[in-house]
Computed example of a mutant assay.
Amino acid sequence: MDEVRVSSWNELLECLYEDAWMPHIQRFRSPYAFRGLPNASFTLKTSLMQLGGDYAQLEGHLLRNFKKYAHRDVVEQDSIWHWLSLAQHHGLPTRLLDWTFSPFVALHFATATIECLQQDGAIWTVNYKKAHDALPYSLKAKLAGEGADVFTVEMLESIKTLREFDDLAPDTFIAFFEPPSLDDRIVNQYALFSVISNPCVAVNEWLDQNPDTYRKIIIPADIKWEIRDKLDQANINERVLFPGLDGLSLWLKRQYYPLKQVTETLQNEQPQQP
Results as ranks from 00 to 15, higher is better:
residue 48 L to S: 02
residue 48 L to F: 06
residue 49 M to C: 06
residue 50 Q to A: 10
residue 52 G to D: 03
residue 54 D to I: 06
residue 55 Y to R: 05
residue 57 Q to W: 04
residue 58 L to A: 14
residue 58 L to D: 02
residue 62 L to E: 07
residue 62 L to T: 01
residue 66 F to V: 04
residue 68 K to G: 05
residue 69 Y to G: 07
residue 71 H to S: 15
residue 72 R to N: 15
residue 73 D to G: 14
residue 73 D to N: 12
residue 73 D to P: 04
residue 77 Q to M: 08
residue 77 Q to N: 13
residue 78 D to V: 06
residue 78 D to N: 14
residue 80 I to P: 11
residue 80 I to T: 12
residue 81 W to I: 00
residue 81 W to V: 01
residue 82 H to A: 06
residue 82 H to K: 00
residue 84 L to I: 08
residue 84 L to Y: 13
residue 87 A to E: 04
residue 88 Q to S: 03
residue 88 Q to L: 02
residue 90 H to C: 04
residue 92 L to I: 12
residue 93 P to W: 08
residue 93 P to S: 05
residue 95 R to N: 14
residue 95 R to K: 14
residue 96 L to P: 08
residue 98 D to W: 02
residue 98 D to E: 00
residue 99 W to R: 08
residue 102 S to C: 08
residue 103 P to N: 01
residue 104 F to D: 01
residue 106 A to Y: 02
residue 108 H to K: 04
residue 109 F to W: 07
residue 109 F to G: 11
residue 110 A to W: 00
residue 110 A to G: 00
residue 111 T to Y: 05
residue 111 T to G: 11
residue 112 A to E: 12
residue 112 A to R: 01
residue 113 T to E: 15
residue 115 E to T: 13
residue 115 E to L: 06
residue 116 C to R: 13
residue 117 L to S: 12
residue 121 G to H: 06
residue 123 I to P: 12
residue 123 I to N: 10
residue 124 W to K: 02
residue 126 V to L: 01
residue 127 N to G: 09
residue 128 Y to D: 09
residue 131 A to G: 03
residue 132 H to R: 05
residue 133 D to N: 11
residue 133 D to F: 12
residue 133 D to I: 08
residue 135 L to E: 01
residue 136 P to G: 04
residue 139 L to D: 04
residue 141 A to G: 09
residue 143 L to K: 02
residue 143 L to Q: 00
residue 144 A to F: 13
residue 145 G to Q: 11
residue 145 G to T: 07
residue 148 A to S: 15
residue 148 A to I: 09
residue 150 V to F: 11
residue 151 F to H: 03
residue 152 T to H: 04
residue 152 T to E: 07
residue 152 T to F: 02
residue 152 T to R: 07
residue 153 V to T: 15
residue 154 E to L: 07
residue 157 E to W: 03
residue 157 E to T: 11
residue 158 S to M: 10
residue 159 I to E: 06
residue 160 K to T: 12
residue 162 L to I: 08
residue 162 L to G: 08
residue 164 E to N: 12
residue 166 D to K: 09
residue 166 D to H: 15
residue 167 D to I: 01
residue 167 D to L: 10
residue 168 L to N: 11
residue 169 A to I: 07
residue 170 P to A: 02
residue 170 P to F: 06
residue 171 D to S: 15
residue 172 T to G: 10
residue 172 T to S: 12
residue 173 F to N: 07
residue 175 A to F: 02
residue 176 F to W: 01
residue 177 F to K: 06
residue 177 F to Q: 07
residue 179 P to E: 07
residue 182 L to F: 15
residue 183 D to Q: 05
residue 184 D to P: 10
residue 186 I to H: 05
residue 187 V to D: 00
residue 188 N to S: 10
residue 190 Y to S: 13
residue 190 Y to L: 09
residue 190 Y to F: 13
residue 191 A to T: 11
residue 195 V to A: 09
residue 195 V to C: 15
